[in-house]
Amino acid sequence: MINNSVWVVVLASAVTYGTPLLYAAIGELLTERAGVLNLGVEGMMLVGAVMGFWAVQRTGSLLLAIVVAAIAGASMALIHAFLVITLRANQIVSGLALVIFAGSAGLSSYLGNDLNLADQPARHAFTPFLPHSWQTASVVGPILFKQSALVYASWALVVIVALYLNRTRLGLNVRAVGESPEAADAMGINVTAYRYAHTLVGGAFAGVGGACFTLWITPQWVDGITAGAGWIAIALVIFAFWRSALCLVGAYLFGAFSGIPFAFQARGILKGIPPELFQSLPYVMTIVVLVIVSSAGARRRLGAPAALGTPYVREER
């Protein structure tokens, strides 16, 4: 049966493990397109993951859990937004502070402890829902159809974000705010409002990305469950040259790097090789891909919004 071949399993897990990366990367992309760099993705994902899991344990509703995860992620982003947009703090340091505040040794762990979420089996989890005959179709079945609703929603999101940024008035304004806030301001665009809105939406998507782990992939709560996915998502945005369609490609590429260790270990492939070597694959490949992209990108400055990381102050040009 071809569906049991290791490559089909790896590709299926690429889509699975790529999905949280995709949500987080699309969120970060929106934030960065508006000129705000939020390095706190890892923290926002973890808080989204823990609160989403809490909501599903309390209410049993997966939809509500996703909403709670999004709100949790957005409220973490609000801290960053207030500090860097209103108080003009250094965006890099504020983002790092957010990871420490919310991350695996911070708020997410505190909440997980305080709400007694560790070692609980999930009451509900996302499962594949398409017709059984589709799911068992050869090759495409496990890869594309035996996936949860979160995967299909993420595809819709990629299309919507691409259309929003490139084909709508609002999207044009966002790009103006990210490229040249002075010009945008002169056009009558409210730079502060746009930056707040996109930072919050970015945080909401990061929260949903985190919830992908606790509501579908794992599905349970463990401290630091995202294991660096938030950082990989930030690298993905650079890899994708700030374009949402390329985020999809990159997310599945890194999804494959994260999925390979599990697939190979489960099947005893390459037994002599230490498991740590496989586990380090996503981290090492992030560095490799980033080097390739940045040395090519440095030549032509592809994509990075010109005002990324700088506060906008009207009276100081």
Binding site: A89, A97, I100, F101, A102, G106, L107, S109, Y110, L111
Partner: peptide, 26 residues
């Protein structure tokens, strides 16, 4: 005294220091 409290506290202190920076510069 749940774990994670120390990280929350460190984060909060850092957030406040970052916000306070505004008062130094402006």
């Amino acid at each position: 005294f749940p774990s994670g409290l120390v990280g929350v506290m460190q984060g909060l202190i850092l957030f406040c220091a970052l916000g306070g920076e505004l008062l130094v510069r402006y």
